[in-house]
Simulated scan of single mutants.
Amino acid sequence: MHARAVAATTTALLGAAALLLPASAARAGAERPTIIAHRGASAYAPENTLAAVDEAAELGISWVENDVQRTKDGELVVLHDDNLKRTTDVEEVFPGRAPWKVKDFTAAEIAHLDAGSWFGPAYAGERVPTLEQFMDRVELHHQKLLLEIKNPDLYPGIEQQTLKVLGNEGWLDPDHLASRLIVQSFSVDSVRSVHELKPAVKTGFLGTPPVADLSWYANFTDQINPSHSSISTDYVASVHELEGPHGGPLEVFTWTVNDADTARLVGRYGVDGIITNNPDVVRDAFPEG
Protein backbone atom coordinates (compact mmCIF):
# COMPACT_ATOMS: atom_id res chain seq x y z
CA MET A 1 0.00 0.00 0.00
CA HIS A 2 1.31 3.46 -0.88
CA ALA A 3 2.27 5.79 1.98
CA ARG A 4 -0.53 8.23 1.11
CA ALA A 5 -3.09 5.43 1.23
CA VAL A 6 -1.71 4.18 4.55
CA ALA A 7 -1.98 7.69 6.00
CA ALA A 8 -5.53 8.08 4.76
CA THR A 9 -6.55 4.71 6.21
CA THR A 10 -4.92 5.51 9.55
CA THR A 11 -6.68 8.87 9.73
CA ALA A 12 -10.01 7.26 8.99
CA LEU A 13 -9.50 4.62 11.68
CA LEU A 14 -8.49 7.20 14.25
CA GLY A 15 -11.52 9.30 13.41
CA ALA A 16 -13.81 6.30 13.77
CA ALA A 17 -12.22 5.45 17.10
CA ALA A 18 -12.77 8.98 18.34
CA LEU A 19 -16.46 8.66 17.60
CA LEU A 20 -16.62 5.65 19.91
CA LEU A 21 -15.01 7.42 22.86
CA PRO A 22 -17.05 9.03 25.62
CA ALA A 23 -17.35 12.78 25.21
CA SER A 24 -14.94 13.44 28.07
CA ALA A 25 -12.32 11.07 26.65
CA ALA A 26 -12.57 12.73 23.25
CA ARG A 27 -12.08 16.12 24.89
CA ALA A 28 -9.23 15.05 27.15
CA GLY A 29 -5.96 16.37 25.82
CA ALA A 30 -7.69 18.07 22.90
CA GLU A 31 -7.31 21.54 24.38
CA ARG A 32 -6.35 23.23 27.61
CA PRO A 33 -9.22 23.41 30.11
CA THR A 34 -10.44 26.85 31.10
CA ILE A 35 -8.29 28.14 33.97
CA ILE A 36 -10.14 29.99 36.74
CA ALA A 37 -8.25 32.04 39.34
CA HIS A 38 -9.70 30.94 42.71
CA ARG A 39 -10.58 34.02 44.78
CA GLY A 40 -8.35 35.81 42.31
CA ALA A 41 -4.76 34.65 42.00
CA SER A 42 -4.88 33.85 45.70
CA ALA A 43 -1.47 32.15 45.90
CA TYR A 44 0.11 35.49 45.05
CA ALA A 45 -2.16 38.14 46.59
CA PRO A 46 -4.71 38.20 49.42
CA GLU A 47 -7.79 36.27 48.38
CA ASN A 48 -10.92 37.99 47.12
CA THR A 49 -9.24 41.41 46.97
CA LEU A 50 -8.75 43.76 44.06
CA ALA A 51 -5.04 42.97 44.26
CA ALA A 52 -5.83 39.30 43.58
CA VAL A 53 -7.85 40.30 40.51
CA ASP A 54 -4.95 42.46 39.31
CA GLU A 55 -2.50 39.59 39.85
CA ALA A 56 -4.68 37.23 37.80
CA ALA A 57 -4.74 39.79 35.02
CA GLU A 58 -0.95 40.16 35.18
CA LEU A 59 -0.67 36.41 34.73
CA GLY A 60 -2.96 36.56 31.69
CA ILE A 61 -5.84 34.67 33.34
CA SER A 62 -9.26 35.49 31.90
CA TRP A 63 -11.53 33.91 34.52
CA VAL A 64 -11.72 35.00 38.17
CA GLU A 65 -13.75 33.30 40.91
CA ASN A 66 -15.09 35.07 44.00
CA ASP A 67 -17.38 34.64 47.02
CA VAL A 68 -20.28 36.92 47.97
CA GLN A 69 -21.65 37.58 51.48
CA ARG A 70 -23.96 40.29 52.89
CA THR A 71 -23.34 42.93 55.56
CA LYS A 72 -25.61 44.01 58.41
CA ASP A 73 -26.90 46.93 56.35
CA GLY A 74 -27.47 44.88 53.20
CA GLU A 75 -24.32 45.51 51.16
CA LEU A 76 -22.83 42.65 49.16
CA VAL A 77 -19.13 42.18 49.85
CA VAL A 78 -16.54 39.77 48.48
CA LEU A 79 -15.30 37.46 51.21
CA HIS A 80 -15.00 33.69 51.55
CA ASP A 81 -15.66 33.14 55.26
CA ASP A 82 -18.87 34.12 57.02
CA ASN A 83 -16.72 35.89 59.59
CA LEU A 84 -13.98 38.47 59.26
CA LYS A 85 -11.41 36.97 61.62
CA ARG A 86 -9.14 35.00 59.26
CA THR A 87 -8.51 37.58 56.55
CA THR A 88 -8.83 40.97 58.28
CA ASP A 89 -7.68 42.78 61.44
CA VAL A 90 -11.22 42.85 62.84
CA GLU A 91 -10.13 41.44 66.23
CA GLU A 92 -7.87 44.44 66.74
CA VAL A 93 -10.27 47.06 65.41
CA PHE A 94 -13.42 45.66 67.05
CA PRO A 95 -12.12 43.51 69.94
CA GLY A 96 -15.44 43.24 71.75
CA ARG A 97 -17.56 41.99 68.88
CA ALA A 98 -16.76 38.29 68.62
CA PRO A 99 -17.44 36.09 66.67
CA TRP A 100 -16.98 38.82 64.05
CA LYS A 101 -19.62 37.60 61.60
CA VAL A 102 -19.94 39.52 58.32
CA LYS A 103 -23.68 39.87 58.88
CA ASP A 104 -23.07 41.70 62.17
CA PHE A 105 -21.00 44.52 60.65
CA THR A 106 -22.00 47.39 58.40
CA ALA A 107 -20.35 47.94 55.06
CA ALA A 108 -18.70 51.10 56.40
CA GLU A 109 -17.18 49.19 59.31
CA ILE A 110 -15.85 46.47 57.03
CA ALA A 111 -14.44 49.07 54.65
CA HIS A 112 -12.07 50.26 57.39
CA LEU A 113 -10.55 46.81 57.95
CA ASP A 114 -7.14 45.76 56.67
CA ALA A 115 -7.66 42.71 54.45
CA GLY A 116 -4.08 42.42 53.22
CA SER A 117 -1.58 42.42 56.08
CA TRP A 118 -2.37 38.81 57.04
CA PHE A 119 -1.02 37.79 53.64
CA GLY A 120 2.08 39.95 53.68
CA PRO A 121 3.29 43.48 54.47
CA ALA A 122 3.27 44.45 50.79
CA TYR A 123 -0.55 44.24 50.90
CA ALA A 124 -1.12 46.21 54.10
CA GLY A 125 -4.21 48.38 53.73
CA GLU A 126 -5.90 46.21 51.10
CA ARG A 127 -9.65 46.33 51.67
CA VAL A 128 -12.59 43.94 51.51
CA PRO A 129 -14.22 45.00 48.23
CA THR A 130 -17.90 45.42 47.65
CA LEU A 131 -19.31 43.30 44.87
CA GLU A 132 -19.57 46.41 42.70
CA GLN A 133 -15.92 47.29 43.27
CA PHE A 134 -14.83 43.75 42.50
CA MET A 135 -16.87 43.61 39.30
CA ASP A 136 -15.54 46.99 38.19
CA ARG A 137 -11.99 45.68 38.52
CA VAL A 138 -12.81 42.49 36.62
CA GLU A 139 -14.41 44.61 33.91
CA LEU A 140 -11.38 46.91 33.81
CA HIS A 141 -9.23 43.93 32.87
CA HIS A 142 -11.87 42.56 30.43
CA GLN A 143 -12.00 39.39 32.50
CA LYS A 144 -14.81 36.93 33.20
CA LEU A 145 -16.49 36.17 36.52
CA LEU A 146 -17.38 32.91 38.25
CA LEU A 147 -19.43 34.27 41.16
CA GLU A 148 -20.21 32.07 44.15
CA ILE A 149 -23.15 32.89 46.38
CA LYS A 150 -21.76 31.91 49.77
CA ASN A 151 -23.85 30.74 52.74
CA PRO A 152 -27.19 31.73 51.18
CA ASP A 153 -29.07 30.35 54.19
CA LEU A 154 -27.60 33.22 56.22
CA TYR A 155 -28.82 35.83 53.75
CA PRO A 156 -32.43 35.33 52.61
CA GLY A 157 -33.02 36.83 49.18
CA ILE A 158 -29.33 37.16 48.32
CA GLU A 159 -29.90 35.56 44.91
CA GLN A 160 -32.29 38.31 43.79
CA GLN A 161 -30.04 40.97 45.28
CA THR A 162 -26.97 39.57 43.51
CA LEU A 163 -28.79 39.55 40.20
CA LYS A 164 -29.88 43.14 40.78
CA VAL A 165 -26.28 44.23 41.34
CA LEU A 166 -25.17 42.31 38.26
CA GLY A 167 -27.86 44.07 36.25
CA ASN A 168 -27.01 47.49 37.62
CA GLU A 169 -23.36 46.95 36.72
CA GLY A 170 -24.23 45.95 33.15
CA TRP A 171 -23.37 42.27 33.55
CA LEU A 172 -26.73 40.92 32.37
CA ASP A 173 -26.35 42.12 28.78
CA PRO A 174 -26.03 39.56 25.95
CA ASP A 175 -22.23 39.74 25.85
CA HIS A 176 -21.69 38.96 29.53
CA LEU A 177 -24.45 36.36 29.60
CA ALA A 178 -23.06 34.55 26.58
CA SER A 179 -19.49 34.08 27.73
CA ARG A 180 -18.41 36.14 30.73
CA LEU A 181 -20.59 35.23 33.71
CA ILE A 182 -21.43 32.10 35.71
CA VAL A 183 -23.19 32.09 39.10
CA GLN A 184 -22.57 29.06 41.31
CA SER A 185 -23.32 27.80 44.82
CA PHE A 186 -23.08 24.74 47.04
CA SER A 187 -26.80 25.26 47.72
CA VAL A 188 -29.15 23.51 45.30
CA ASP A 189 -31.95 25.88 46.30
CA SER A 190 -29.75 28.90 45.59
CA VAL A 191 -28.76 27.67 42.12
CA ARG A 192 -32.38 26.88 41.29
CA SER A 193 -33.45 30.31 42.51
CA VAL A 194 -30.93 32.07 40.27
CA HIS A 195 -32.12 30.02 37.29
CA GLU A 196 -35.79 30.73 38.01
CA LEU A 197 -35.23 34.45 38.60
CA LYS A 198 -33.02 34.96 35.55
CA PRO A 199 -33.06 31.93 33.22
CA ALA A 200 -30.54 33.53 30.85
CA VAL A 201 -27.79 33.39 33.50
CA LYS A 202 -25.44 30.42 33.27
CA THR A 203 -25.28 28.55 36.58
CA GLY A 204 -23.09 25.96 38.31
CA PHE A 205 -23.73 23.58 41.20
CA LEU A 206 -20.77 23.00 43.51
CA GLY A 207 -20.64 19.35 44.47
CA THR A 208 -20.63 15.79 43.15
CA PRO A 209 -24.22 14.58 42.83
CA PRO A 210 -24.82 10.87 42.22
CA VAL A 211 -24.87 9.98 38.54
CA ALA A 212 -28.49 8.88 38.89
CA ASP A 213 -29.46 12.42 39.94
CA LEU A 214 -27.58 14.35 37.26
CA SER A 215 -30.55 14.53 34.88
CA TRP A 216 -32.54 16.38 37.56
CA TYR A 217 -29.74 18.92 38.05
CA ALA A 218 -29.64 19.46 34.29
CA ASN A 219 -33.03 21.17 34.53
CA PHE A 220 -31.57 24.23 36.25
CA THR A 221 -27.76 24.20 36.08
CA ASP A 222 -25.25 24.33 33.25
CA GLN A 223 -22.32 23.00 35.26
CA ILE A 224 -21.53 20.36 37.86
CA ASN A 225 -18.47 21.68 39.72
CA PRO A 226 -16.98 19.04 42.02
CA SER A 227 -13.85 18.66 44.11
CA HIS A 228 -11.06 17.13 42.03
CA SER A 229 -10.70 14.26 44.51
CA SER A 230 -14.30 13.14 43.94
CA ILE A 231 -14.30 12.61 40.15
CA SER A 232 -13.16 10.18 37.49
CA THR A 233 -13.22 9.89 33.72
CA ASP A 234 -16.52 7.99 33.96
CA TYR A 235 -18.11 10.63 36.17
CA VAL A 236 -17.11 13.48 33.88
CA ALA A 237 -18.39 11.51 30.88
CA SER A 238 -21.74 11.02 32.65
CA VAL A 239 -22.03 14.77 33.18
CA HIS A 240 -21.14 15.52 29.57
CA GLU A 241 -23.84 13.16 28.28
CA LEU A 242 -26.55 15.49 29.57
CA GLU A 243 -27.82 18.76 28.10
CA GLY A 244 -28.20 21.77 30.36
CA PRO A 245 -30.92 24.44 30.36
CA HIS A 246 -29.15 26.49 27.68
CA GLY A 247 -28.95 23.66 25.19
CA GLY A 248 -25.28 22.66 25.48
CA PRO A 249 -23.69 19.71 27.25
CA LEU A 250 -23.30 20.05 31.00
CA GLU A 251 -19.79 21.19 31.90
CA VAL A 252 -17.41 20.33 34.73
CA PHE A 253 -15.26 22.96 36.48
CA THR A 254 -13.29 21.15 39.19
CA TRP A 255 -11.60 22.61 42.30
CA THR A 256 -9.15 23.34 43.89
CA VAL A 257 -6.18 22.11 41.84
CA ASN A 258 -2.85 23.75 42.62
CA ASP A 259 -0.15 21.54 41.10
CA ALA A 260 0.76 20.45 37.59
CA ASP A 261 0.42 16.70 38.11
CA THR A 262 -3.13 16.93 39.47
CA ALA A 263 -4.01 19.40 36.73
CA ARG A 264 -2.88 16.97 34.05
CA LEU A 265 -4.77 14.15 35.77
CA VAL A 266 -8.11 15.97 35.80
CA GLY A 267 -7.34 17.18 32.29
CA ARG A 268 -7.24 13.53 31.22
CA TYR A 269 -10.62 13.09 32.88
CA GLY A 270 -11.93 15.60 30.34
CA VAL A 271 -12.92 18.45 32.67
CA ASP A 272 -13.89 21.73 31.05
CA GLY A 273 -12.32 24.00 33.65
CA ILE A 274 -9.93 23.98 36.59
CA ILE A 275 -10.31 26.33 39.56
CA THR A 276 -6.92 27.04 41.13
CA ASN A 277 -5.00 29.30 43.49
CA ASN A 278 -1.99 28.92 41.17
CA PRO A 279 -3.43 29.68 37.74
CA ASP A 280 -0.05 30.05 36.06
CA VAL A 281 1.14 26.66 37.32
CA VAL A 282 -2.02 24.93 36.13
CA ARG A 283 -2.01 26.76 32.80
CA ASP A 284 1.59 25.82 32.14
CA ALA A 285 0.86 22.15 32.87
CA PHE A 286 -0.86 21.97 29.49
CA PRO A 287 0.49 22.60 26.00
CA GLU A 288 -0.85 25.72 24.39
CA GLY A 289 -4.03 25.03 22.53
Results as ranks from 00 to 15, higher is better:
36 I>D: 02
51 A>G: 05
244 G>E: 05
277 N>A: 14
43 A>Q: 11
118 W>S: 11
96 G>M: 15
29 G>K: 12
145 L>W: 14
90 V>T: 07
80 H>G: 06
72 K>P: 00
113 L>H: 04
145 L>T: 06
51 A>P: 03
92 E>Q: 14
251 E>L: 15
108 A>N: 00
1 M>P: 02
222 D>E: 13
192 R>T: 01
33 P>L: 07
77 V>P: 02
50 L>M: 10
179 S>F: 01
89 D>E: 07
259 D>P: 10
185 S>T: 12
256 T>K: 07
75 E>H: 01
120 G>Q: 12
257 V>K: 12
270 G>R: 12
171 W>A: 08
121 P>M: 13
230 S>Y: 06
245 P>T: 05
42 S>C: 11
109 E>R: 01
202 K>D: 00
35 I>C: 03
206 L>M: 13
12 A>Y: 11
272 D>F: 04
54 D>Q: 12
288 E>H: 14
209 P>G: 05
87 T>A: 11
163 L>R: 05
157 G>I: 04
35 I>V: 15
49 T>M: 08
117 S>M: 09
170 G>C: 05
157 G>A: 05
128 V>K: 11
91 E>N: 06
238 S>P: 00
219 N>W: 00
243 E>I: 15
48 N>W: 06
222 D>L: 04
266 V>S: 12
48 N>C: 10
10 T>K: 14
285 A>H: 04
217 Y>D: 03
158 I>Y: 05
88 T>C: 08
231 I>T: 14
147 L>W: 03
81 D>I: 01
133 Q>F: 03
148 E>M: 11
137 R>F: 13
207 G>M: 09
182 I>Q: 00
127 R>K: 15
59 L>P: 01
219 N>F: 00
186 F>N: 08
28 A>I: 07
33 P>T: 05
53 V>K: 03
